[in-house]
Computed example of a mutant assay.
Amino acid sequence: MPCALCLQEAELRRSHVIPEFLYETLYDEKHRLQVLSIIPEQANWREQKGLRERLLCDACEQKLSVWERYASLVLKGGVSLTVRQEGNIVHISDLDYRQFKLFQLSVLWRAGVSSLQFFENVQLGKHAEALRQLLLAGDPGSPERYGCFMFGLKHEAGVFTGLIMQPGKVRLSGHIAYRFVFGGFLWAMFVSSHDLGAPLNQCTLSAAGNMAILLRNATDMENLVSFSAELDQMGRAPSR
């Protein structure tokens, strides 16, 4: 079968759509993940290593793993960053734009091409091919395209990492975005044929490696889709 990324015929790996390291806080004592079924007639089931499917060849799997490794270090405090907090907005500097943006794009693209029902709401259309070409070339593209807002989720003064939710679609200021929850963050990944522009681009990752994250208490959430209203507020955050 052809690899979804390079399109070459190859033996395919059982690839993660959401990277393996993001499941670590969800495993039980036997390193199993309970998957909650959204189909009434289908019982819940357990996965040994998260949600996977035969998607990528070994070479492409390794390509994406480099960006996943960097993102893992960023999220776990393994790289040196400059952090400044103003109220409930955290400003982060010194990120590697190329690696972190490609990590974000890789999750969005994999969700869009996945055949798993968990990702059925991510419908990328023509953007799937545009994202594939960027990933294949290792090109993060412009900060104005396929940007991502991040909300940090807190719970009882700690980071709320114990949740991965089925992605959903939201519309913000004329743009479509897909909402993911994993790794203690809500990620709103924009998919649009036109540039984000101000003020939305003030909070997505810049080419200089700067980004703003809005902090929220996870216990206050009645419906995660309601976060979409706050994305515009993030767009009014102080300029970088």
Score class of each variant (00 low, 15 high):
residue 2 P to D: 10
residue 6 C to D: 15
residue 6 C to G: 04
residue 6 C to W: 03
residue 9 E to Y: 13
residue 16 H to A: 00
residue 16 H to I: 03
residue 17 V to P: 00
residue 18 I to N: 07
residue 37 S to V: 05
residue 41 E to A: 15
residue 50 G to D: 09
residue 52 R to A: 03
residue 53 E to K: 06
residue 55 L to H: 07
residue 61 E to G: 12
residue 62 Q to Y: 06
residue 62 Q to F: 08
residue 67 W to S: 00
residue 68 E to M: 06
residue 71 A to Y: 10
residue 75 L to S: 12
residue 76 K to N: 15
residue 81 L to K: 11
residue 83 V to P: 00
residue 85 Q to G: 05
residue 86 E to G: 11
residue 89 I to R: 11
residue 90 V to K: 07
residue 92 I to H: 02
residue 92 I to Y: 04
residue 95 L to I: 06
residue 103 F to I: 09
residue 106 S to C: 08
residue 109 W to S: 02
residue 111 A to G: 12
residue 112 G to N: 03
residue 115 S to G: 14
residue 119 F to S: 02
residue 120 E to D: 13
residue 120 E to N: 14
residue 123 Q to F: 12
residue 125 G to W: 08
residue 128 A to C: 06
residue 133 Q to I: 08
residue 136 L to P: 06
residue 136 L to D: 07
residue 139 D to A: 14
residue 140 P to A: 03
residue 144 E to A: 08
residue 147 G to L: 00
residue 149 F to P: 05
residue 153 L to D: 05
residue 158 G to K: 04
residue 160 F to K: 06
residue 166 Q to N: 07
residue 167 P to M: 08
residue 171 R to N: 12
residue 171 R to A: 14
residue 171 R to W: 10
residue 173 S to R: 12
residue 174 G to A: 11
residue 176 I to S: 10
residue 176 I to W: 11
residue 178 Y to N: 00
residue 183 G to A: 06
residue 185 F to N: 00
residue 187 W to D: 01
residue 188 A to H: 01
residue 188 A to Y: 08
residue 195 D to C: 06
residue 201 N to V: 10
residue 206 S to R: 08
residue 210 N to Y: 11
residue 210 N to M: 10
residue 213 I to W: 03
residue 216 R to F: 15
residue 222 E to T: 06
residue 224 L to I: 13
residue 227 F to C: 13
residue 237 A to P: 05
residue 237 A to K: 07
residue 238 P to R: 14
residue 240 R to M: 11
